[in-house]
Design a protein around this nucleic acid. Sequence first.
DNA 1: GTTGAATAAAAATTCAAA
DNA 2: TTTGAATTTTTATTCAAC
Lengths: 154, 154
Amino acid sequence: MRSKKQRQKHILRIMEGRHFHTQQEVAVALHESGFDVSQSTLSKDFKELKMVKTTAPDGSFKYVLPQFLDREIRAGSLHREIEDFATNVALAGQLVVMKTESGNASGVCETVDQAGWSEVVGTIAGDNTILLICQTDEAARRLAERIRGIMNGR
Amino acid sequence: MRSKKQRQKHILRIMEGRHFHTQQEVAVALHESGFDVSQSTLSKDFKELKMVKTTAPDGSFKYVLPQFLDREIRAGSLHREIEDFATNVALAGQLVVMKTESGNASGVCETVDQAGWSEVVGTIAGDNTILLICQTDEAARRLAERIRGIMNGR
DNA sequence: GTTGAATAAAAATTCAAA
DNA sequence: TTTGAATTTTTATTCAAC
């Protein structure tokens, strides 16, 4: 049975264990497993599988499934956003007040939301101010410290 | 000041608000903001920013920052892995025992690890069996139910 | 609906210049 | 180190066949 379904399953299998830089590389590996497939079809498979091309730490490209987009890469990207746009962090009880460059609060706020930090129970963004609401004063302190760490490049 | 740093900040800014399908599209938008930049340079910028090309729900491609790779897409991809390879789930006190197609336990296990489910405190994978260790029997029950839901396509 | 050959389109790299 | 023109490489689409 060499259905599309089977082939795509096999793509998932081989791409767990190995890194591939191009679709052509994958085509070759599939060929070795008895799946003859053109780059054209592979491009369609990758689209259906929502495969993502990402930059490895060494600067090369590799394809991964979205759930394997490294935490590190996500974190690094998040850090850069905060480094670039956050200008100040202040504590006010259970609230953390972030200042950003004018017009960038909502962008930074979205990023903070995506981060999924456990201290944060809610956020509001204005033009250059973000309010991060925490459960407790202690949580707010931890959060503020975390953000300061990022702003100071770690 | 039109340094690379400035340009990359501006890329982050405009890409928060809008979806771009190609680097060329971004180049045009940048041009309108007074940043003249070639596709060549943009390709290098995207690499440094670790920008990722992803498939939108409507089937088109768009570039996003890694932290914005939709939860939905990550979840969908994770679901497919489990649908494709998991064959059975059983409860044993605080343990959940997953069976997979032969040879695929470690792949599925990695995916489960990436999912970051709060019930799971530890995992071990053999060849076709995964042990998911939970804090309590109750947590294990919830987890098993969750996995069964995914296996049944929902 | 699925496929691949041919093609178009897009992206990555090279390299020379600044 | 940064840049872009030219080029190569890779990827997406088209289209005809199945």
